[in-house]
């Protein structure tokens, strides 16, 4: 049962790995440049899924402060400085991500049971299991700095009772998607140019022509003839 749980609990990894391997295999085995790019895309997509899945929890909401947050005058300062981003990124995320029971690869909280009331369960390995820490952190910072921070600490404490999805991986992968698009565009553009220059986008024919250009002899004489002499 443990094994099944282990496997099922990490199904997002399996999807990611399978997709990645399919993509890589296409890159390895396909001889057509366009298909190679398709494989490359699949390969990159698997990484997108990986990133998205590690940041997502079922029942989690977007990282927007919920509840009574009154200190409007200090909103920007408070938000930007610590209460949310810092608290989440440094303490909550770090400790939360790593499973308490010492399993190497944390199972994803997609499958973990999330209590309906929003009160985080102490055992579930979610991103936001540490409201106490967050509250303490916020309170600790607030005290002795500025009285207006009291309200911030208050808000953070309330916020901690809501389950947030970690936005950072999603933001990161947005960047990666942009990069992926650029790569695909450039790859396809190159394929077009190759087609113009060589008249083909089949890799073995390209290789035969390059080989001929470099060494002056056909790469595979018998094959070259059988195919009507690509070189």
């Amino acid at each position: 049962m443990d094994i099944i749980e282990f496997i099922v609990g990490r199904y997002n990894y399996w999807i990611f790995i399978t997709l990645m391997m399919i993509g890589l295999y296409i890159v390895i085995s396909r001889g057509n440049l366009i298909k190679t790019i398709v494989g490359l895309n699949l390969f990159q997509t698997s990484v997108f899924i990986f990133y998205i899945s590690i940041g997502k929890i079922v029942g989690g909401t977007a990282p927007i402060l919920v509840g009574s947050y009154k200190a409007d005058d200090s909103y920007g300062e408070g938000y930007g400085d610590e209460s949310h981003g810092a608290g989440e990124q440094t303490s909550g995320a770090r400790e939360g991500l790593h499973d308490a029971d010492g399993l190497d690869i944390p199972s994803n909280s997609l499958s973990a049971e999330v209590p309906a009331g929003g009160a985080p369960s102490a055992v579930s390995g979610s991103l936001h299991q540490m409201p106490d820490t967050a509250r303490e952190t916020a309170a600790g910072m607030a005290s002795g700095v500025n009285a207006t921070y009291d309200s911030v600490a208050d808000a953070a404490a309330q916020g901690a009772e809501v389950i947030y999805t970690n936005p950072l991986p999603h933001v990161l992968i947005l960047t990666a998607i942009v990069v992926g698009v650029a790569t695909t565009a450039l790859g396809l553009a190159l394929a077009v140019r190759i087609r113009e220059a060589y008249g083909t986008i089949e890799e073995d024919e390209l290789e035969a022509e390059d080989h001929f250009a470099e060494f002056g002899v056909p790469l595979h004489p018998e094959q070259g003839q059988a195919r009507g002499g690509a070189a």
Binding site: V27, I28, S29, R30, G31, T36, E203, D204, L206, E207
Partner: peptide, 12 residues
């Protein structure tokens, strides 16, 4: 896959 040996696949 049998017929090809262009380096992209090889490298990958």
């Amino acid at each position: 896959a049998l017929a090809r040996s262009w380096p992209v696949g090889f490298m990958a």
